[in-house]
Design a protein around this nucleic acid. Structure first.
Length: 847
RNA sequence: GGGCGCAUAGCUCAGCGGAAGAGCACUCGGUUUACACCCGAGCGGUCGCAGGUUCGAGUCCUGCUGCGCCCACCA
């Protein structure tokens, strides 16, 4: 394959088509999800290229903040060092070195998969130009008041030592203990319930609902906390649910988001009792204990004082975990940077609502709306070293200066840059335009924004898609980042379980590439893809696809061996046989169907149609019929070669997006042209099907199948030729097809010494064909009788059903005419079938 | 706790108002010169349960049961 087919041309006059790759982590290697996603993107881009578009499929990678930092820190730990031993600058240097040496394995794996991406435009989120995009949009958002710094309760990972956004927290139902503690004494005491007893060290109030009669008398009073002896007020707050627990809540503003808000409303102090590692800092006996050691210690101390009123164990409740390291997340009061999402999310919702961006499948748009309508502000600062450093400098009085890329950072000893970096998703959100050169107005940006389609899994609809929508619309003055969003499903194992290392059910796509090849792997994945639907993958599927590619290979080889060619003109239809006309019409219908299905992202159905046509129509019937035609003289053979060449040419082009390698080899061999990559996508001729030919081939198929069934029932050897005489072919509309039937049913023309051993009648829609065969007394009467009685029962059932339906006066009144006609035809066929079978049974009885 | 989805052949799924389908698996038979990674013939389903709408319901409505998934600051 010559180079350059996959390089986009920003000066091209062709219509642009652009997909940016969802950037895999630089730490990642190819898993089945990638293989699926890439197969689909490649299919889309290859088809559009064949349709005449100037296609850009842009590859790249994500710097993957926490993930990458973790990998390198682990490496350092192996050397007995921490990142602090190196210092920030040296550590970042080390990460870059790691990337150069071990990062980006996935890029080579993409090459093995055969991705037709434009390598000349490969990007990395930490590229200098993409970093400029990050700084530019940060500055713009800040100046528009959409980025702010505030002290808030955020999700904190005590192991990674960084803030996390909501989506980096995964909830699971964990076992805990709900304990009820008595605060205060006597009439003024109150019982609160908690799962995190240690936080009571930071309590600064008790809250009750204002309308709760039980506690009305306590509102405004004070209560003495056990252990610390601190005195805190009892406040009334609407947020408290009187029906939960005791109806009274301990309030820890520094360590619980709800409590923080209650604290704000009542001007309560926020007492921080834990450090960034999760160790207790409050003075006293618990100081220095880890939060999970402090919890039982606090409970024990309370019990000793007789403060524990009740314990409920186990108590299942949702607990947040760090999505990177699974450590239990700690709500923590700290100063962080936030994006004010409400206005951005509103625009993101509107773009989908008014159809500028279409989500496939449409049902998932509902989830998208749910999400954008309920988004919290986005915490974007991370206490890491690997990532885009926040472009903010603090002056002598901590006066904030925001510096965009156009300005030099302020010099002087009194200025220091914010030490934090941005959430990885911040730069990912810019991907659809930062990769094209934004903020500069490059030719690529003009041409390929908005991107045509985004292909990604529905699991990151919220993580990534929403954010790209928000930032794309914001940065590009209201123009959406993509016209279409195609969401594929998740890959599961054969029993429908999620693939995961811990379950040990992961199928490595690389092993499939080795054993079945890229074509089979890709066809398997494309074949299983329906919009939004998950896919259960099993080894058998890959083997089936491999078999299919092999079938295609053999069929093509056979056609070529027999002189199939695209050089020969396909003759006028008048010169063609019914089989030729039929296969040409079927090919035409296939073109329409497959084109339509691809256009609607119905990859699975498109592959199914291609598979069925190739195997069950082209190979099973047309190739067999073509053998007869090629043996029928030079003229017929020439015409047949032309038809074979044409059908195969179209078929290979249709298959190319999902089976790129094999089709390339076969198509160039067939046509002698340079590459199927730049061949034209087939167009349907629009000529309606030849109904007569279609009916004849359908009749032929029924007749041949019936004869084969007869042979099978009679236990005839498949290779054994049986002398036979046919009559009624014209009446059944099968004029001129005797030789085809003879060949396909392995009959042979009767000789002069022909003696009929058995008579077989086959009812077809237009008449009945009778076949007299000479079995020289080998007919298995019992087998035939058995078969006849089975057929008779089926026909009688059919007759009864159709008559019942037709006998219903309401049916005749209300059903459409074509339905009635169809049912009548079925009734006639069933009736004639019954007559035929009964006659045959009588004949058998006579022998 | 809120939302969404799925229950059709042994398995994975398609069909979404007018004769129950495909692939794989299974059974039987095969040296048929493109292909045993193959060929031919078969077996296999009261379409989760209960109601309802309709001349007609896997297909539309309601309820139930069983599974998924997403979201979630009831301590």
């Amino acid at each position: 394959m010559a180079a350059g087919y996959f390089t986009a041309d920003s000066a091209s006059a062709k219509p642009p088509f652009c997909i940016v790759i969802p950037p895999p982590n630089v730490t990642g290697s190819l898993h089945m999800g990638h293989a699926l996603e890439h197969s689909l993107m490649d299919a889309l881009t290859r088809r559009r290229r064949m349709m005449g578009d100037d296609v850009l499929w842009l590859p790249g990678m994500d710097h993957a903040g926490i993930a990458t930092q973790n990998v390198v820190e682990r490496e350092l730990a192996g050397e007995g060092k921490s990142r602090h031993d190196l210092g920030r600058e040296a550590f970042v240097e080390r990460v870059w070195r790691w990337k150069a040496e071990s990062g980006g394995m996935i890029l080579n794996q993409m090459r093995r998969l055969g991705d037709g991406v434009d390598w000349s435009r490969e990007r990395f989120t930490m590229d200098e130009r993409l970093s400029r995009a990050v700084q530019t949009i940060f500055k713009r958002l800040y100046e528009d008041g959409l980025i702010y710094r505030a002290e808030r309760i955020i999700n904190w990972c005590p192991r990674c030592h960084t803030a996390l956004s909501d989506i980096e927290v995964e909830h699971s139902d964990d076992e805990g203990e709900l304990i009820s503690i008595r605060y205060g004494d006597g009439d003024s005491s109150v019982v609160v319930a908690t799962t995190r007893a240690e936080t009571m060290l930071g309590d600064t109030a008790v809250a009750v609902h204002p309308d709760d009669e039980r506690y009305r008398h306590l509102i405004g009073t004070e209560v003495v906390l056990p252990l610390t002896g601190r005195v805190v007020p009892v406040v009334a707050d609407e947020h408290v649910d009187p029906s939960f627990g005791t109806g009274a809540v301990k309030v820890t503003p520094a360590h619980d988001p709800n409590d923080f808000e209650i604290g704000q409303r009542h001007q309560l102090p926020a007492l921080i009792i834990m450090d960034e590692r999760g160790l207790i800092t409050a003075h006293g006996p618990f100081q220095g204990l880890d939060r999970f050691e402090a919890r039982p210690a606090v409970v024990a101390a309370l019990r000793e004082q007789g403060r524990i009123v009740a314990e409920k164990r186990p108590y299942l409740h949702a607990v947040g975990h760090c999505s990177r390291c699974d450590t239990v997340v700690e709500p923590r009061l700290s100063m962080q940077w936030f994006v004010k999402v409400a206005p951005l999310a509103k625009a993101a919702g509107d773009a989908v609502r008014d159809g500028r961006t279409t989500i496939h499948p449409a049902e998932l748009a509902k989830r998208y709306f749910d999400w954008v309508d309920n988004m919290h502000d986005w915490c974007i600062s991370r206490q890491l070293w690997w990532g885009h450093r926040i472009p903010v400098w603090y002056g002598p009085n901590d006066k904030v200066v925001c510096v965009g890329p156009d300005e030099e950072p302020p010099q002087g000893e009194d200025w220091r840059q914010d030490p934090d970096v941005l959430d990885t998703w911040f730069s990912s959100a810019l991907w659809p335009f930062s990769t094209l050169g934004w903020p500069e107005r490059t030719a690529d940006l003009d041409r390929f924004y908005p991107n045509s389609v985004l292909v990604t899994g529905y699991d990151i609809l919220f993580f990534w898609v929403v954010r790209m929508m928000m930032f794309g619309l914001y940065a590009m003055d209201g123009v959406q980042p993509f016209d279409h969003v195609y969401l594929h499903g998740l890959i599961r194992d054969a029993s429908g379980k999620k693939m995961s290392k811990s379950r040990n059910n992961v199928i490595d796509p690389l092993s499939w590439l080795d054993r079945y090849g890229a074509d089979a792997t890709r066809f398997t994945l494309a074949r299983g893809a329906n919009p939004g639907g998950d896919m259960a993958l099993a080894e058998d599927w890959a083997a089936g696809s491999r078999n299919f590619c092999n079938k295609l290979w053999n069929a093509s080889r056979f056609a070529l061996m027999n002189g199939a060619s695209t050089e020969l003109p396909v003759p006028d239809r008048a010169a063609l046989t019914d089989a030729d006309r039929w296969i040409l019409d079927r090919t035409d219908a296939l073109v329409s169907e497959v084109d339509d299905l691809f256009g609607r992202y119905q990859f699975g159905k498109a592959c199914e149609a291609l598979y069925h046509f190739t195997w069950n129509e082209f190979c099973d019937w047309y190739l067999e019929l073509a053998k007869v035609q090629i043996a029928a003289g030079e003229e017929r053979a020439g015409y047949t070669r032309a038809v074979l060449g044409h059908v195969l040419d179209v078929l290979l082009r249709l298959l190319h997006p999902v089976i790129p390698f094999v089709t390339e080899v076969l198509w160039t061999a067939l046509t002698g042209r340079e590459s199927v990559v730049v061949a034209d996508w087939p167009k349907a001729t629009g000529v309606g099907p030849d109904v007569v030919a279609a009916n004849r081939i359908d009749g032929l198929q029924r007749l041949v199948t019936e004869l084969r069934r007869f042979r099978s029932d009679q236990l005839l050897k498949p290779g054994q030729r049986v002398p036979a005489q046919m009559s009624g072919m014209d009446g059944a509309g099968l004029a001129g097809l005797e030789s085809a039937v003879t060949a396909l049913a392995r009959l042979e023309p009767a000789t002069e010494s022909f003696t009929s051993g058995a008579s077989l009648e086959v009812a077809l829609p237009d008449g009945t064909v009778t076949v007299e065969v000479d079995l020289s007394g080998t007919v298995d009467v019992e087998a035939e009788r058995k078969r006849l009685s089975k057929d008779l029962a089926a026909a009688q059932k059919e007759l009864a059903q159709t008559e019942a339906k037709l006998g219903n006066p309401q049916f005749a009144d209300r059903a459409p005419a074509d339905v009635v006609a169809k049912i009548k035809a079925r009734r006639e066929l069933a009736a004639s079938e019954i007559a035929r079978i009964e006659a045959r049974i009588r004949a058998l009885a006579g022998t």
